[in-house]
């Protein structure tokens, strides 16, 4: 089947088998290998991308379902050579180790902050509960999302450094 999908701001046309999963189409046809696959039960969230702005697990979406719609992957986060605040916060807060969950975590966090620009620790933990990380124990991921939220809402550099150094309170 022929599909036309806008990915990271650019339209792609493709002829796919109807059963092709969005994750494999992104990875193997478009060579956007930042989207990872970690399970076969929609449990891990490594494949999380945005479909029309909503976080979806692209291993459980058919490529044909994305026809005519807009997809954003981890490769679309960086703009004009500038890291997205979430990306730099993950780096600063040591929110990744092996990095395999990171693209999915970043995209789920992005969707979370779109909906809730100032989430509490509990809201972050719940918002990311569809994404599994086997390395970090999540503390630094939570800290990174808090740091990014503050960066995106334009808080001062001192406050950001304070968060990076000590973590943020849950309120």
């Amino acid at each position: 089947m022929k599909i036309r999908v806008k990915v990271n701001g650019r339209w792609y046309e493709s002829d796919v088998e109807p059963r092709t999963l969005l994750a494999y189409w992104l990875r193997e046809d478009l060579k956007l290998t930042g989207t990872h696959i970690g399970c076969d039960t929609t449990s891990c969230g490594a494949c999380t991308v945005l479909l029309d702005g909503k976080a979806v697990k692209s291993c459980t979406v058919l490529a044909v379902q994305a026809n005519g719609r807009e997809v954003m992957t981890v490769e679309g986060l960086e703009r004009n050579g500038q890291l997205h605040p979430l990306q730099s916060a993950f780096w600063e807060c040591h929110a990744l180790q092996c990095g395999y969950c990171t693209p999915g975590m970043l995209m789920a966090s992005y969707a979370l902050l779109q909906e809730n620009p100032n989430p509490t620790e509990e809201e972050i933990r719940e918002g990311l509960s569809g994404n599994i990380c086997r390395c970090t124990g999540y503390m630094n991921i939570v800290k990174a999302v808090q740091t990014a939220a503050r960066k995106m809402s334009g808080e001062s550099q001192e406050a950001l450094e304070e968060v990076a150094a000590n973590g943020a309170s849950a309120d």
């Binding site: 990872h36 890291l83 780096w91 040591h94 990095g99 970043l106």
Partner: peptide, 21 residues
């Protein structure tokens, strides 16, 4: 010190074995 491996991994530019095509 911040990790040297992170700049590629946060951009989705890591190269894991399934990325070898």
């Amino acid at each position: 010190v911040g990790r040297k491996e992170d700049p590629r991994l946060i951009r989705g530019k890591g190269r894991y074995v399934d990325d070898v095509m």
